[in-house]
């Protein structure tokens, strides 16, 4: 395969031309899907109105685009990218295609705190709704996500971090969180359960700039950091002994990459809820498109953004005027594609 070396200071990468071409194609596709998404709303627009509205400050649609539609579209793309990147990191570290931020306790932890907040906040205990209103669901989700990850990390740490033990501890903790969530869903009023189900599925409805900013910031800091860590990531595939022999300090490298994965998933979940399947499927889809040894980071992120944006488009148009939570569609869309890729790989 054609590859070019790229050096910046001490760091160097092999840039594969096929990867670059696929990345550019993905970005174009993403822009197109975002534009298609921004047509939808109380006032339907044409594609050209969307484009002029975005770039021409004097146009009639500029305000609606900038205040409502662009932030929602950006939230979708950024959240999808963050989740997918997080998934790619975790799958590389755990060396397991089934690993996802769920294993690190992030999404499940966030689900528990948010469902508890929604169930306690509505109906029976009316007083708590004040607390929920001030804290806000995103803060609650961020808190739960980080707490969940801290629990998993703390329990898995024992004179170093073994990838295998991390995964086992992760499934144990995820089992606790998931079943507590199930139980909380049976406790509350059925209306609160419905609202909680929408959040659990992951939704982009009514997302604004306040959701864009944290995710964009997290990506801006963490993407360069993880790209610097790719050498360690490549080495971590070979097992701890080999890695040490290759001169990579295993524990600091792994801890940093896990921290990056946790932050990405936690911020994304706080913005849009635990959108299903993006973190798990995007790296596997990217892996099969690019054909590399481990999930490629940038390509995974782009696949995640495309998947989430495309899913949101369908979620808003399929049963219009009813809008489905985007997380339902990511699975409906991503699963058959993953199935197709598995099918195609037979030979």
């Amino acid at each position: 395969m054609t590859a070019l070396p790229l050096r910046v200071g001490v760091a160097s990468w092999r840039v594969r031309l096929r990867g670059v071409a696929l990345t550019l194609t993905g970005l174009v596709l993403l822009a197109l899907l975002m534009a298609l998404n921004m047509r939808i709303g109380d006032i339907a627009m044409t594609l050209s109105e969307v484009v002029t509205g975005t770039f021409d400050a004097g146009s009639a649609a500029h305000f609606v685009i900038m205040e409502l539609r662009l932030p929602r579209a950006l939230t979708g793309a950024l959240v999808g990218a963050a989740l997918a990147l997080s998934g790619a990191l975790i799958q590389s570290i755990a060396r397991n295609p089934l690993a996802s931020p769920e294993i690190l306790g992030v999404t499940t932890g966030a689900s528990v705190t948010v469902v508890a907040g929604l169930v306690a906040g509505g109906g029976v205990y009316g007083g708590v709704s004040g607390l929920l209103a001030t804290l806000g669901v995103p803060a609650l989700a961020l808190l739960g996500g980080l707490l969940g990850a801290a629990v998993v990390y703390g329990l898995a740490w024992r004179r170093g971090l073994d990838g295998y033990r991390l995964v086992l501890v992760g499934i144990g903790v995820a089992a606790v969180f998931t079943n507590v969530k199930f139980w909380l869903l049976t406790v509350g009023d059925v209306n609160d359960t419905s609202r909680a189900m929408v959040w659990i599925s992951g939704s982009l409805n009514g997302r604004g700039w306040e959701h864009v900013a944290p995710t964009a910031l997290a990506l801006a800091v963490l993407v360069p950091l993880t790209l610097l860590g790719t050498r360690s990531l490549d080495a971590l595939r070979f097992g701890d002994d080999t890695v040490t022999a290759l001169g990579v300090r295993v524990n600091p490298a792994r801890a940093l990459l896990i921290l990056a994965a946790v932050l990405l998933a936690a911020v994304a979940t706080a913005s849009a809820g635990p959108i299903a399947f993006v973190a798990l499927a995007s790296p596997q889809i990217a892996l099969r498109i690019v054909g590399s040894g481990r999930p490629p980071l940038l390509c995974s992120a782009i696949v995640g953004a495309v998947l989430t944006t495309g899913a949101d488009l369908i979620a808003r148009t399929a049963f219009s005027p009813i809008e489905l939570p985007v997380g339902i569609v990511t699975a409906v869309l991503g699963a058959p594609y993953l199935i197709h890729l598995i099918w195609r790989s037979r030979k």
Partner: peptide, 15 residues
Amino acid sequence: LAGTAVSALLYALTS
């Protein structure tokens, strides 16, 4: 992977 994909699809439809 096939199991995860099919489960995710069915879970979404159930939701």
